[in-house]
Simulated scan of single mutants.
Amino acid sequence: MLNYKIKIKAFDGYILNLSVIKIINYISKQNIKVIGPITLPTKKKIYTILRSPHVHKKSREQFKLFIHKRFLVVYNVKKILKPIDLPSGVKLEIKKC
């Protein structure tokens, strides 16, 4: 019996939630116990760029990038999980425990 920890990341929270539902439905069809989704803290990156390359130092523009994360724990898997088709922009990390 294998146990897996699945970490899912995406830039868009809505697409991430749809992907998590798709993964849970796939796993529940195989009668496997799943704990989650557990919402992990959203990471926010802010990039500041000067608008004018020469004189106007105070004129700046900021861009924000949010990384949403979810966590699933899958218990008592008899066989290895096959890859699931997910939308672009969703990263899936699977670890055995």
Rank of each mutant, 00 (worst) to 15 (best):
D12R: 09
H68V: 09
I6W: 01
E61Q: 12
M1N: 06
I23T: 01
L16E: 05
L50G: 08
K58Y: 07
I94A: 00
L16M: 09
S52R: 15
I49G: 06
H68I: 10
I23E: 02
K78V: 11
S88C: 11
S52V: 15
P53E: 03
L2P: 06
I80A: 04
I80V: 01
S19P: 00
I6A: 03
I8D: 00
K44N: 06
I15L: 12
K57Y: 04
K29I: 07
K7H: 10
L16R: 13
L50H: 00
N3Q: 11
R70C: 01
K7L: 05
I32A: 04
K79R: 12
Q62T: 04
T39V: 09
N17E: 12
N3P: 10
S19Q: 09
K33T: 13
P87T: 08
K9G: 01
T39H: 08
Y14Q: 15
L72F: 02
N17F: 11
I24W: 06
L81M: 15
G36N: 10
K69C: 01
K96S: 12
C97M: 13
K96V: 01
K7Q: 08
T39W: 06
P53A: 14
H54I: 13
K78L: 08
K29L: 11
F71H: 02
S88P: 07
V73R: 13
C97L: 14
G13F: 15
S59V: 05
N31M: 08
L40F: 05
D85W: 05
L65K: 02
V73C: 00
K45A: 00
R60Y: 02
V20D: 04
R60I: 09
K33E: 03
H56K: 01
K22Q: 08
N25I: 15
L72H: 05
Y47A: 10
K79H: 10
N31K: 15
R70K: 08
Y14P: 02
K64F: 11
L72K: 11
K43T: 08
E61M: 00
K58D: 02
K64R: 14
I49Y: 09
V74H: 02
H54N: 05
